[in-house]
């Protein structure tokens, strides 16, 4: 299919993406470099978590120690600890579909992974309506092919079809694809990726 991306092209595209990311300090890193055809890109994004409250378990409370006097410290400002939500985005290559696949996960400060329903609620409002029809064929949970842990995935079954539209128009099909599907789950690429891509 026209939208299929051979591994060599994928590899070239992510190398270029990394170069741009490094230039912008945008935070993408290459993982699993030693495994041929299993390298992937990772970016971590930390945002304030306004929704998830976690109560410390009574057991954790029982482990507290009365150190306040010993550790008395006038030089500390004690702010209310802002909770964070960590998002991790992985760009992998699907050998079954011959296209890039976006895997992602998000977890709260205490390590709890967001559920699929939570994920859906966080899908950008602009996309919710258009995806409502077949939302679960777009967003599913899968075992990460390298890490072997549950990850969320934007299902690659329509990717080749989508990429077919950009064939011949995009110098870097992975960047084009990522900037198209990323915003669905809160991942945005700075416009410099487009500018730099079109120049090179």
């Amino acid at each position: 299919m026209a939208g299929c991306v051979p591994w060599e092209e994928f590899n070239r595209c992510i190398t270029q993406l990394l170069t741009i990311s490094d230039r912008l300090s945008d935070g993408w890193t290459l993982h699993n470099k030693d495994a041929p055809k299993e390298t992937y890109l990772v970016k971590k994004v930390i945002i304030p978590d306004t929704e998830n409250k976690s109560d410390l378990s009574p057991f954790a409370v029982s482990l507290e120690e009365p150190l306040d006097d010993v550790l008395e410290d006038a030089n500390v400002i004690r702010e209310a600890g802002g909770r964070i939500l960590t998002w991790e985005y992985h760009v992998l290559y699907s050998r079954s579909y011959l296209v890039p696949v976006l895997y992602f996960n998000a977890w709260t400060h205490d390590g709890r992974l967001l559920s699929l329903e939570d994920m859906w609620c966080r899908v950008h409002a602009n996309f919710q309506d258009s995806l409502q029809e077949n939302r679960w064929s777009v967003l599913t949970q899968q075992e990460h092919p390298v890490l072997r842990r549950p990850f969320y995935q934007l299902h690659p079954c329509h990717t080749a079809q989508l990429l077919g539209c950009f064939r011949g128009k995009s110098p870097n099909i992975v960047i084009t694809w990522l900037s198209t599907v990323g915003p669905v789950v809160g991942l945005t690429l700075p416009p410099q990726y487009a500018e730099i891509t079109s120049v090179e």
Binding site: L56, E64, P66, L67, D110
Partner: peptide, 9 residues
């Protein structure tokens, strides 16, 4: 998380 000296879980 509750501002006391103690571990997190």
């Amino acid at each position: 998380e509750r501002g006391k000296f103690g571990p997190r879980v």
